[in-house]
Simulated assay, not measured.
Amino acid sequence: MAINFTVNGEKITTELNPLTRLIDFLRDELKLTGTKEGCGEGECGACAVFLDKKVVNSCLIPIALCEGKEIITIEGYTKTEKGKIVVQAFLDEGAVQCGFCTPGMVMSSEAILSSTKGKPTEDDVRKGLSGNLCRCTGYDHIVNAVLRASDAASKEGKNLWQ
């Protein structure tokens, strides 16, 4: 059974077992290794990707559910203007240490910024990141990075998340 979808704008067709996890397809078949597997149970957020503009844990998604969908990984997102702003904010705030959680945190940050139209409160950020685990940096730096990304876009005279 052919399964058709797009990944980072590229049309994909695969005939893998429909129960193959999306994370395994991304990492093993497409070599998009920015998406990390932490827990494999949807608890840590390291495997976060966008599936039709909604952040999901790719370790929980069978490839069959991707039929006709658009998937954006950390590799695709960081090439966008919004992605560059978020990544720079993470760097400026020291919100990256070992880096394992960073792709999921960045993807979740985009979801927070989009859902708040680029104007999140600290509470919005903390709630939005609640499904992501970090063992190194601590959450204050990450929260500050999301708020900085919002401020950076506003200072440039545009809000990319409206």
Rank of each mutant, 00 (worst) to 15 (best):
T116Q: 09
R148W: 15
I85D: 03
K54W: 08
S154N: 10
S108N: 15
M105K: 10
L32R: 03
G104I: 11
D24Q: 13
N4C: 07
T14P: 00
Y77E: 03
C66M: 05
K54G: 08
Q88N: 03
L60P: 07
V146N: 03
A46I: 07
E67V: 15
L19W: 00
Q162S: 10
A2T: 06
V86R: 02
K155N: 13
T121G: 05
Q97S: 03
I63S: 01
C101K: 01
L16T: 07
A48P: 09
T35W: 12
C98W: 02
F5Y: 06
K117H: 12
E122L: 07
I74T: 06
L129T: 07
L147I: 13
S109K: 01
K79P: 01
T6A: 14
S58K: 13
D151V: 15
T13S: 00
G157R: 11
D52F: 11
T14G: 00
G40Q: 04
K69V: 10
L30I: 13
K54Y: 07
V7H: 12
G118E: 05
A89K: 08
L129W: 01
K158I: 08
Q162A: 14
C66N: 02
G94P: 05
D123G: 11
T6G: 14
G42Y: 06
K84A: 07
I74L: 09
